[in-house]
Simulated scan of single mutants.
Amino acid sequence: MSPELVAVLAVIIAAMVFDYTNGFHDAANAIATSVSTRALTPRVALGMAAVGNFVGAHLGEKVAKTVGDELVRLPLGIPSLGIVFAGVLGAIAWNLITWYFGLPSSSSHALFGGLVGATMVASVGTVQWSNILHKVLIPMVLSPMVGLVLGFVAMVALMWAFRRGHPGKLNRGFRMAQTFSAAAMAIGHGTQDAAKTMGIVVLALYTGGYQSSATHIPEWVYWASATVLAAGTYTGGWRIIRTLGRKIIDLGPAEGFAAETVASSVLYFNAWVLHAPISTTHTITSAIMGVGATKRLSAVRWNVAGNIVTAWITTFPAAALIACLCFFVVRPLFG
């Protein structure tokens, strides 16, 4: 087995480990609202989220191409594979840290931060800062703002449209509707997050010289990324599920439906129209905050929200710093 093949396999394995942690770390994105409102039982919700992630992975080609070809520019060879490997390790480490503390941080921004940090500290490769700005940093700021505003607007519209409805019947109806909104959220998560792992695998194949393009995605990469993400999702991330579903606001079925519908719509628009790899975590969390603010501002537990926002802000630089440290450790192995 050639050194290049060993290095490529090491990166692919690391990418799949990241994919798995992404699954259990971000399972809350798809199911926390449905579980907290008792629209779905936890295991049914997790199973549906896993299937949705699997389906969504096959719809995320454009996001995968952005991650694989437009964020960093690396020359061919084993040293570049070491950069990618260190970047993925940084993302995995940050995922585990935030999962332990129950903070719904962004696996996506952990991956981007890790990749950028490792590239910056290495002596080869360049960061494509213009693309980082327009396709990562600006969407990182705007998507939570959009989710917050649209969540508020959507909930106000539902309250007005059903203002004369019977509360018991409305709750039952919205619990049924949440089956569909949660499924849409799961597919949106797969479209965004499985695609990011696919982009890393394709980058490894290209950098290792095993394919001539950093944008072509072999069919096996779709299936591998989708399967591992689905498996990780099914194991659940109960610490974060509790934070999203119970600690920000007390969600009802209507609030859960509104938040999931808004968040999934934002995910699809960015994936299919802008080709921007945004954070599902930021989007659903901000939508929940917007929905909760329609009750009254004090209905949102802003101290919990503040902790989450702090995790958002620190994710990119923290993952980048960890990736830098990882690079110095693994560099001798990729010489």
Rank of each mutant, 00 (worst) to 15 (best):
A320F: 06
R43P: 00
T283K: 01
T41L: 02
K196C: 01
T310L: 15
V63R: 06
V304C: 08
A230P: 09
Y268N: 02
F112D: 00
I12L: 12
A231E: 05
M198K: 09
F162D: 12
S279E: 02
W160G: 00
L96P: 03
G87H: 07
A118C: 09
L205I: 03
R246F: 13
L5E: 03
L96S: 05
P3R: 00
A28R: 09
I313P: 06
M120W: 09
T119E: 05
T283S: 04
V116I: 15
M159D: 14
L115S: 01
T66H: 12
A204V: 05
I97K: 08
G68V: 04
L150Y: 03
C326Y: 05
F316E: 05
A177K: 06
I278N: 11
V273Q: 01
S225N: 13
V17E: 11
A161S: 14
W302I: 09
K295L: 08
V202R: 12
A231L: 15
K65H: 07
D250F: 06
W223C: 00
Y210W: 04
V329W: 12
L76A: 13
S105N: 05
S36R: 11
A161K: 14
A161W: 11
T215V: 12
A254W: 07
W312V: 03
R43E: 10
R246I: 00
G236E: 03
K62E: 13
I12V: 15
A118E: 08
K196P: 02
E260N: 13
V84D: 01
N307E: 07
L71H: 10
Y206I: 07
I322L: 14
L244E: 09
R301Q: 13
A214V: 06
F85D: 04
T310G: 10
G188M: 08
F24E: 00
W272V: 06
L9W: 03
A122V: 04
W238S: 10
G335C: 10
T310M: 14
A320S: 11
W129M: 13
H134P: 00
A184N: 14
A320P: 07
F316M: 14
W220R: 10
P332Y: 09
P79F: 03
S264D: 12
L148V: 08
T243G: 09
W160T: 12
S34I: 08
L244Q: 02
A323Y: 01
M1T: 06
L274W: 12
A154H: 00
F152K: 03
M1E: 06
V84I: 15
F152N: 10
T315V: 11
N171E: 15
A305T: 12
A186M: 05
S265W: 07
A10H: 03
V116F: 09
I200H: 04
C324K: 09
K247A: 12
A271T: 08
K295M: 11
T33S: 14
S212G: 15
Q178R: 10
A50E: 07
D193P: 02
F18Q: 04
A91T: 05
L103G: 01
V329Q: 10
G113P: 04
S225L: 09
F180S: 13
R164L: 11
E219V: 14
P253Y: 07
G290H: 07
D193F: 00
G117F: 05
L244F: 08
L150M: 13
T66R: 11
M48Y: 01
W312K: 06
T281V: 02
G90A: 06
S264Q: 13
S298K: 15
